[in-house]
Nucleic acid binder design. Structure first.
Length: 471
RNA sequence: GUCCCCAUCGUCUAGCCAGGUCCAGGACAUCGGCCUUUCACGCCGACAACACCGGUUCAAAUCCGGUUGGGGACGCCA
């Protein structure tokens, strides 16, 4: 790949959220442009007025921003470019490269069906092609494409693809309502915007020969093409709502770090030897179309979560605390002490794969606890009363309420009572957190702070006494 | 139906273009172990794949042909 002018684009249609398939297409276009110091353009393809919505446009923009895929131009809206398309139609018409077709939709459907029944390709039969018809209500404009020949193009990921023009028909460029079709608008925009590399999903390979025909009719130079393999759901069918969390924002809300998602998406279809983890800069530096695979793949959720856990562990505590705050707020914790949240983050990092996990795991620090039933029965037992009361007394006078200092307090206590840590670790854990699973009890105590830790231990002691009195 | 594309562990993939160094490497998941105050983290190990059939060749995961399987397209959707 030489260092010619590289301009790529991402052209989503705002008829749904940005899902991970689209996000990966956007990512590869972005990476390719950044790698080559080129430009990356965002274009909203809203030619389908009935299905395009403003909310979806906003979701797409928000998703792109969250992923960190910044664009150099746009967003452009196809709905605002109709004069440009109309101009091109005029040119094609007067050059004899396009024509009006008066066939009604019903007629076409019927003829298509007939062709199909006869085992023929259900394509337009060219009825109006040479009739030299004029503009009329209900008429569409079709491309007058060559009757014979072969279209060859070199796909940067799939290699040479060739299609016989007989497979193609005279596709509609402008609809009877005056609006323009996808294939036409794309070509006009790509050529007007100077797009040099069209990187898109596999599902467009069949469109490419048609679009090439339009380029040729327009007399514009062709871009390079690269078609990315599809992303499939676990059932090997194309991604859809059925597959649950597929929208980019759903991953954000799940507590996935954008870096982790970007990394995962990059590794789905692209590789750099055995390397699994990449910084964004590395991705930009190393990305190349030559290492994009050809076959469709299934998005591996477990692997994303694992990677996310790794990035959480690698992330700075203070930054993580900031990221965690909104998730804690969702769980009803607000107005928290930043230092304490930071402490909580530190203790939870190794055991959280998402920010949601982490927020849930941190809840006991910030909210009143209740004892899990089984934990209560199993560990908060009367025979521990003496030791726990002794512990409480020692904690009150411990010189340093830090992980290290507390270790000292405990080892003295164990020595004194001639017991092992195993005997009281779980009871203390339950007293402090209400659960049998938590970060280490010393770090928990440190983050909780002396006052809180003492209060919880005292509560547990009176709870045990209450049980004793009643039972 | 016609055309286009694809095919390595359960999953993502390396290797394939320039055939031997591959009885196929890494990662996730799974299973075992170590560490250990719980759960994790971390570390160590195990399981597990070249879709099939032919051809070329001294030699094929790698090249060629076919078969099967999967995906896509054939819209006044994008």
């Amino acid at each position: 790949m030489n260092t010619e002018n590289v301009v790529t684009r991402f052209p989503p249609s705002p008829t749904g959220t940005l899902h991970i398939g689209g996000a990966r297409t956007a990512l590869f276009n972005w990476l390719f442009a950044r790698h080559h110091n080129g430009r990356f353009i965002l274009r909203i393809e809203d030619t389908d007025k009935a299905r395009s919505t403003r909310e979806d446009t906003e979701i797409i923009v928000e998703s792109m921003k969250w992923l960190g895929l910044d664009w150099d131009e746009g967003p452009y809206f196809q709905s605002q470019r109709t004069e440009i398309y109309a101009e091109c139609i005029k040119k094609l018409l007067s050059a004899g490269k396009a024509y009006y077709c008066h066939c009604s939709q019903e007629e076409l459907d019927q003829r298509r069906k007939q062709a199909k029944d006869k085992g023929l390709k259900p394509k337009y039969d060219g009825k109006c092609r040479d009739l030299n018809l004029g503009k009329a209500p209900g008429a569409v404009v079709r491309l007058k494409s060559p009757l014979s020949g072969t279209i060859n193009f070199k796909d940067l990921v799939k290699g040479v693809i060739s299609v016989d023009t007989e497979e193609l028909d005279d596709l509609i460029l402008q609809r009877s309502d005056g609006s323009f079709t996808y294939n036409f608008a794309v070509v006009v925009d790509d050529s007007k915007m100077g797009i040099t590399y069209v990187i898109r999903g596999d599902d467009h390979v069949n469109n490419t020969p048609r679009q090439i025909l339009i380029y040729q009719a327009l007399g514009e130079p062709l871009p390079h093409y690269a078609h990315l393999p599809m992303i499939l759901g676990p059932d090997r069918t194309p991604l859809s709502k059925r597959h649950g969390a597929t929208s980019v924002l759903a991953y954000r809300d799940m507590g996935v770090l954008p870096h982790a998602l970007v990394n995962s998406l990059a590794r789905l279809g692209w590789s750099h030897g055995d390397q699994e983890e990449f910084s964004i800069q590395e991705l930009v530096d190393l990305f190349s179309l030559t290492h994009v695979g050809k076959s469709a793949g299934i998005f591996n959720m477990e692997k994303l979560l694992d990677l996310n856990g790794k990035y959480i562990r690698a992330e700075d505590d203070a930054r993580l605390a900031d990221l965690l705050l909104p998730f804690l707020a969702d769980l009803g914790c607000s107005g928290l002490d930043k230092e304490q949240v930071k402490g909580a983050v530190r203790t939870l990092k190794p055991r959280a794969n998402t920010l949601v996990d982490m927020a849930q795991g941190a809840l006991f620090y910030f909210k009143a606890i209740t004892y899990d039933k089984g934990a209560d029965e199993k560990f908060l037992r009367p025979e521990l009363l003496t030791i726990l009361e002794d512990l409480l007394a020692e904690l009150k006078i411990a010189p340093e309420f830090t992980q290290k200092g507390l270790e000292g307090v405990f080892s003295a206590l164990l020595e004194k009572h001639q017991i092992k840590l195993g005997k009281i670790a779980q009871p203390v854990r339950v007293a402090l957190t209400g659960k049998t699973v938590s970060p280490g009890i010393f770090e928990v105590m440190e983050v909780l702070g002396r006052e809180n830790a003492i209060k919880r231990l005292a509560n547990a002691i009176s709870h045990i006494k209450g049980k004793k009195a009643n039972g």
